[in-house]
Amino acid sequence: MSIFVNAETTVVIQGISPTSQGLYHGLRNRAYGTKVVAGTNPKRGGETIEGIPVFASVAEAVEATGATASFISVPPPAAPAAILEAAEAGVPFIVCITEGIPAHDEARVYNRLRREFPGTRLLGPNCPGIISAGQCNIGITSGDIALPGGPVGLVSRSGTVFYQAMYELTQKGIGQTTGVGIGGDPVPGTSFIDVLQAFEADPETKAILMIGEIGGSAEEEAAAFIKEHVSKPVVAYIAGVTAPPGRKMGHAGAIVSGSKGTAKAKMEALAAAGVLVAQNPTEAGEKMAEVVRHLG
């Protein structure tokens, strides 16, 4: 089984053109087996690009194809409007990989989605996307690093560590159900807790690998949720173990302020919640391999 997307998910690429990153990654997603059914571009409605019909708006694309997910790869100034356009068209799942959206714009869009479009889930922005191994890949994750079959679900703030963690499992012959990159921006559309809750409810996900990073309080909040609501074993790694206070990493949300948001504080909170905490991604893979060996 998988969470959020599956083999039946149909995708519209927002911001498609013959030279766009959306087309490049959308074609890779299609080659993986994802059902890419439409693209949108206000200036190219009625065209067909690489076999993908293009519509002037998301509403037109949804009406014609019944698309159930959107893949947004547009520049930062256009991304908030693109997210809202998809929500207004009734798309239930939106993946936005765009980096560099101002935090106040993210907050505005997040609050509008919660208030006006409760049936729509946003993944991202500034995220690698989602891959349900062997079924559906939306975003920029390389499909060949994922091994279908479960029993492990992955959730990560960091994109590159997400790829490494998935590949560590694949090298050990450990399959994945779904890998979810939530992104490292200050206002993610989908949180650790959202994904943990979905994995807890998924009967085919037997264990969870969580990748956090310095900055913010998301990992501490996840730890509290795990302690109270997650019955499945969780392994975690926090990127930025050696970062000094005040150091900003590549993500807007990855900044340490005083003693808050440090890797040490996050690791301690997770360990106190019963999570197996690793010191590096390779060790995380090793710990998960041990967990999988003892699954009933």
Score class of each variant (00 low, 15 high):
244 P>H: 10
249 M>C: 10
240 G>F: 04
241 V>F: 10
225 F>P: 08
214 I>W: 01
226 I>V: 15
228 E>C: 00
217 S>F: 06
211 I>R: 02
246 G>H: 05
220 E>R: 14
218 A>E: 02
235 V>W: 10
218 A>K: 11
250 G>K: 14
253 G>V: 04
249 M>F: 13
231 S>F: 05
239 A>W: 10
240 G>A: 03
245 P>C: 08
212 G>W: 08
210 M>H: 05
242 T>D: 02
234 V>H: 11
249 M>E: 05
235 V>Q: 08
214 I>A: 00
250 G>H: 09
230 V>F: 00
240 G>R: 00
212 G>Y: 09
221 E>L: 12
260 K>H: 12
244 P>W: 13
259 S>A: 11
260 K>G: 04
241 V>P: 05
215 G>T: 11
248 K>H: 13
254 A>Y: 11
251 H>C: 03
258 G>V: 15
243 A>Q: 11
255 I>M: 14
214 I>N: 03
251 H>E: 07
252 A>V: 12
253 G>E: 06
258 G>P: 05
228 E>A: 15
238 I>S: 08
225 F>K: 04
250 G>N: 13
215 G>M: 10
234 V>I: 07
251 H>A: 01
247 R>G: 09
240 G>P: 03
252 A>K: 10
252 A>L: 09
215 G>A: 12
241 V>Y: 13
257 S>F: 00
243 A>W: 07
217 S>R: 15
243 A>V: 10
218 A>G: 10
237 Y>A: 03
254 A>G: 08
224 A>Y: 04
238 I>T: 14
222 A>M: 07
217 S>Q: 14
244 P>Y: 12
241 V>W: 11
223 A>W: 03
236 A>R: 05
218 A>S: 02
242 T>C: 00
252 A>N: 07
222 A>V: 02
220 E>D: 09
244 P>G: 08
258 G>C: 09
246 G>P: 01
222 A>D: 02
218 A>P: 13
239 A>D: 13
247 R>F: 11
221 E>S: 00
216 G>S: 04
222 A>F: 01
231 S>W: 07
250 G>L: 13
